[in-house]
Amino acid sequence: MFSRSLYRLRNLSRHNGRSFYNSSSYFKHSALITAFQPLLHNKPYATTTQHAASTSSLNQTELAKFAAIAESWWDAEGPFKPLHVMNPTRLAFIRSTLCRHFGKDPFSVRPFEGLKFVDVGCGGGILSEPLARMGASVTGIDAVDKNIKIARLHADLDPVASSIEYQCTTAENLVEEQKKFDAVIALEVIEHVADPAEFCKSLSALTVSNGATVISTINRSMRAYATAIVAAEYILHWLPKGTHEWSSFLTPEELVMTLQRASISVEEMAGFAYNPLTGQWSLSDDVGVNFIAFGIKNSE
């Protein structure tokens, strides 16, 4: 089940300077994924300055409103469909790498039982909930309180997911609180932070010695430029212009270096490939656009 080919570090350089996008469908879907990112995660630009002070208690209308948003957020056939379709692929990577790293039985239903995970930029909880079903004690954090509300509402629908601890906070704050986790997971977040090096240091500080860090992002490749920026922002108008800055994307090499300086050694990397015929995503060794990396925190 998890015998998908995983990208090994030594192949990193091979995939640079590849041709433009392969097919228009692939192109469309990558861009679509990108388009939803602001809504899915803690993205500063997606926030208004409206803050918790003005809504210090929940009233029933507010609750109903959030429930409606949560439902469309979680509607697998709704506007977030591409993300729902891609999510199992990200989880397959996490499951296979972390099972191996923590020496867990890959045929176990709840392999992460007893492990503490933090999902940085959890959004509506699309990653946190599956991780909780896989047995992890999950903390989901997001700086956007609307996301946290949506995540909380949805998680309470499932007794297993209701154990997730959602917090309206940032990775930096958790570092200040001296929280530690067996695995720190930040998917599609790093391309939006001002200082990736600092962000990686925070992630590293949250990871226990020999713990795991998983990061996914978009490559600074011509292909990613065409899909994530030109198409999504200028042609299809899925995103406001300026949502993504190509120059702030990281190449796999840069991510590896940045993590290395934060005492995390990247062990495995994989790209995401979309098959327009089956409509399914799979892991591939093409890290040209979207990619995911797994690293281990060096023991001090």
Binding site: Y45, T47, N173, A194, D195, E245
Partner: peptide, 10 residues
């Protein structure tokens, strides 16, 4: 860019 830095948000 509408990107407000994480630091500022933080």
């Amino acid at each position: 860019s509408r990107l407000i830095t994480t630091k500022r948000l933080a």
